[in-house]
């Protein structure tokens, strides 16, 4: 099928490129748009490495076609940093707690965690597990990820006071 022009907002900037309807949002971001933060892990919606926010909600970018995201606001891991380009409190907490190893699932974890903290500034362990339950990490055994998200929540609450 013919490529069609698709315009969406990625990390705050309007971006346009052409793609066939069969191109997933993940491949569209990573290919024509060159936004490579979201990662391809399984392409069947299980691993969560491709998680991005669409209109503020985490979704699997491998299970959505780019054409469906036309006109929508998409946030990838690159968009989590502050306007000064410095890592966000969540990203800093992942560094402090070493909530990662190889870095491959990390963008999806951060997206899932960001969505959680946006809704719930004081998540308990069960909330965190639920929020990242759809993201498989093969390196960490999740402990330091959970610690990182707890730390981020604490730091954000302190900063808000």
């Amino acid at each position: 099928m013919k490529p069609r022009s698709i315009t969406l907002t990625v990390n705050g900037a309007k971006r346009t490129a052409a793609a066939e309807p069969r191109v997933t949002l993940l491949d569209f971001l990573r290919g024509p748009l060159g936004v490579t933060g979201a990662h391809m892990g399984c392409e069947h919606g299980v691993c969560g490495a491709c998680s991005v926010l669409v209109e503020g909600e985490p979704v699997r970018a491998c299970l959505m076609f780019a054409v469906q995201a036309a006109g929508k606001a998409v946030t990838t891991v690159e968009g989590l940093a502050g306007s000064d380009g410095e890592p966000s409190p969540l990203q800093e907490a992942f560094r402090d707690a070493h909530g990662l190893q190889c870095g491959y699932c990390t963008p999806g974890m951060l997206i899932a965690a960001q969505a959680l903290l946006d809704e719930n500034p004081d998540p308990d362990e069960a909330d965190i597990r639920e929020a990242i339950g759809g993201n498989i990490c093969r390196c960490t055994g999740y402990v330091q990820i959970i610690e990182a998200i707890k730390l981020a929540a604490e730091n954000l609450r302190e900063a808000a006071q």
Partner: peptide
């Protein structure tokens, strides 16, 4: 802190798919 984590948390790792 590790040296590597910064590039990974900011989406700046360079994997073969990149």
């Amino acid at each position: 802190r590790t040296q590597e984590d910064k590039r990974f948390v900011t989406g700046r790792g360079v994997f073969v798919q990149d």
